[in-house]
Amino acid sequence: MSGSLSTPRIRIPRSARAGEVIEIRTLMEHPMQTGLHQQDGRMPPRDMLARLMVRMNGETVLSAEFRNGTSANPYHVFFVRIDRTSQFEFSWTDERGRTARAEARVTVA
C-alpha cells in the first residue's frame, strides 16, 4: 500500500494550571496488517506502523515500538504533568519509513 499516512487525531487540553496532570489521547488510523492472515481470500501484504514518538518542548516524553499484537488504528492514552506552556509534537513512523505528525500547544495562564 502506498500513499501517505492518515492524519492523527489528538485529544489534549488547550490549557492547564501549572502543576496539573493532563490526559493525552492519540488515535492513528492505520490497518496494521501483519501479512499473516487471509482476508476475503487474499493475503494482504504487511503494512505496519513501527513507532510513535511524543515530545514536549523538544524532549522525549514517551515512545512506543509496535509489534503484531497492537490493534489496527493504534490508540494510546498517557498522562503528563504541565509546569509551563508547552508545545507537544507527535510522530508516527511506519515500517517503510513514512511518517505522520501532529502538534499541540497547552497554555498555562
Partner: peptide, 23 residues
C-alpha cells in the same frame, strides 16, 4: 507472534501508565 508493544517512558510522564488496545 508474542510481541504486542514496547513503551519507553521518561520522568516527564506524571505516572508510569499507558493505555492502549491490543489484538
Amino acid at each position: 507472534t508474542p510481541g504486542v508493544a514496547t513503551f519507553r517512558l521518561t520522568p516527564l510522564l506524571a505516572r508510569a501508565e499507558v493505555q492502549t488496545r491490543i489484538r
